[in-house]
Design a binder for these strands. Structure first.
Lengths: 112, 112
DNA sequence: ACTATAGTTAGGTCAATACCTAAGTATAAG
DNA sequence: CTTATACTTAGGTATTGACCTAACTATAGT
């Protein structure tokens, strides 16, 4: 199959978990250490760190260790890629749907 | 953890696979039957159908059987939700990044 | 030096995912 | 009525994902 490691795949995969999305939301407000990020979650630290690794492998975040503290921060580029993919797809099919609006509406109505 | 079945989770999960994204691209151009959708892929039909099930469970597509042919088509709403989540996050952190641009640039430069 | 803190590594369990083959059902075509 | 087509169901394997506990390393504080 297509090498399951292209950007879209790893980014969407990273986003497909509520814990990881919550981490991103936290980081979108401010950089934070592992401990700060982990604190809201009822999860063993090693388990939580796997999520951080997935996020970092996807390129959505970056980290840096200073002394014994590792600080994470957001990296916007890959997210923009994912968003672009979605926007592109959606624009194509919404143009289509406009043309066939009545037809689609009818279809949706018989699936209540 | 958060019920792993909220909309964002299932939508991102559905998008986290190249086969499924290719199916969505196909469907964004036109509705299609199972056979038409499967044809480009070197995969047993039952395996392929699992992908269609994941897509339909996520709400990204809908299907309808007429005679012995099941036709799939795109359903735009959930995609828009995912896109909104991304856009919202990104706008928050890009505002932040503007403020700290020099700092972030410096950080990125020592990770070549 | 000693102890606490912050994170890391090792290794194990359990469930879910992504595949497969083989055999079935329902409709259409001859 | 018979056969081909279009999907569906059943059931099996192998890998990956999400979690855990226990034990370790490195730095900071006393």
């Amino acid at each position: 199959m297509a090498a399951a490691s292209d950007t879209s795949t790893t980014v969407f995969r990273a986003l497909a978990d509520p814990t990881r999305r919550a981490v991103l939301e936290h980081l979108s407000r401010a950089p934070a250490s592992v401990g700060e990020l982990a604190q809201p979650f009822d999860m063993a630290l090693p388990s939580f760190m796997q999520h951080l690794k997935v996020l970092e492998a996807s390129g959505l975040v970056r980290s840096r260790k200073t002394g014994r503290v590792r600080t994470y921060r957001i990296a916007p580029a890959p997210l923009r890629d994912a968003e672009d993919w979605l926007a592109r797809q959606r624009s194509v099919w919404e143009r289509r749907l406009d043309q066939f609006d009545a037809y689609v509406t009818a279809l949706q109505e018989d699936r209540p």
